[in-house]
Design a protein around this nucleic acid. Structure first.
Lengths: 222, 222
DNA sequence: TTTTTTTGTTGATTTAAATCAAGCTTTGCG
DNA sequence: CGCAAAGCTTGATTTAAATCAACAAAAAAA
């Protein structure tokens, strides 16, 4: 039995506005690709619930996890100027997305400039998210500070859509996280254990809770 | 004597189109900030020539280089939805930028939807750039493959505006590069030396040339 | 110009993470 | 249900990069 998707908080967001005009809701089940590398890019997607994994296929056929996307974030938005998608987007657990057809968007945009403004705001937010993710993950000296920063980034990105700012349901497996952060499953496991021993995090399978934000921040930014 | 800026290739780009409507050219000299963290965000910038360094100030007062921006790329674009800039942007060497005032842009956008479309395309491109940069820098097992991937990323991003696809003038110092990639000056120096010994790169001060693209790619994606 | 400071290189030692390896736990399936 | 497979944790050893340290080269200042 798959866990249910977390409900979205109520509120008027750019996505819900775009949504009402021109997007379709889609329920996507675990491991289903939204799109694959090199497929024709005809839509962008807004995550409504659940989590998506973005991957690249390297030459040696080992996949690399280049990111995760959570509710309120876009997927495939960089394809607006491309003919084809540049990576794979795959559902992790049960998810819900809005599919925004680019042709429709383009046509609507001409009639309703405010729709374009919405998209501009969304894209700008996505840029900020990408930059923050980048800065939180890059250039950490130790695996510990990298993982701490990554966890904080996840919590920040999810706080808007989770009931609690300190609890997070993360359907992603250890291998995917380790792959994304560039170290081994074993290293990840050791650090998670250490963080639990120190009382920084509580981890039960895929449910993670922050117990000591201050210490976690200290590890992340030291 | 500062080296001159590389000239831009001719051609109609999104930036030049925006440019003609509402932006001002600015020449910025070395180490001058375009904007600083927490300043009110009233404009986005498009790099025309030279290089900019983006940095964050951490708690311990050691700055972290979160990225570099080259001709054709945006700076501060994530501020469209923010009141204040989230990081510092500082010129490295002599540079030239277009300053695009957000208020003007907003007003023009209402009258000219094609201007908004331009911005959407620019933002989408910037997203793609950020994602590619991220994927090229994150999750490398060795410092060697990380540096190789970083160099390839730099060359790719600069090829459009440099005379040669294999030559790059990189005004950035070793410390900034090492900081950005998350390792020490010494490690960077050793790997650069190794790459030169192996005949992969030719490095003379700030002029870098790719001598063996295939081998460099092999190191990057292995 | 010489001096000082910054920036970059190379070597020896230490340390953090990878690797190798074994056992444990959970999940899915016939 | 029982078994297989996948996912996760922990320990021992090896290896890549940090650190410590000295020096060289280039820029900036006097």
């Amino acid at each position: 039995m798959q866990p249910i998707c977390r409900p979205l908080k109520a509120g008027k967001t750019e996505i819900s506005i775009m949504d009402s005009y021109l997007s379709k809701h889609n329920i996507v089940s675990n491991a289903t690709p939204l799109f694959l590398h090199q497929e024709p890019a005809d839509a962008i997607y807004a995550v409504c619930a659940g989590c998506f994994k973005l991957t690249e296929q390297s030459a040696e056929n080992n996949e690399k996890v280049i990111g995760f996307r959570f509710p309120g974030e876009l997927i495939g938005e960089d394809a607006i100027h491309n003919q084809h998608y540049q990576y794979n987007a795959v559902a992790v657990g049960h998810t819900s997305v809005c599919k925004i057809d680019l042709k429709e968007l383009n046509e609507c945009g001409k009639l309703m400039p405010e729709l374009q403004l919405n998209l501009i705001t969304l894209l700008s937010k996505q840029n900020a998210m990408l930059r923050e993710e980048f800065s939180s993950v890059v250039a950490k000296h130790t695996a510990e500070s990298l993982l701490a920063a990554f966890m904080l980034n996840l919590f920040k990105r999810n706080s808007r859509y989770q009931e609690s700012g300190t609890k997070l349901y993360l359907p992603v497996g250890r291998d995917a996280i380790a792959n994304h952060l560039g170290f081994r499953r074993e290293t990840l496991s050791r650090i998670f254990s250490k963080f639990q021993q120190k009382g920084l995090l509580s981890i039960q399978a895929k449910n993670i809770e922050i117990l000591d934000l201050a210490k976690l921040e200290h590890i992340a930014y030291s």
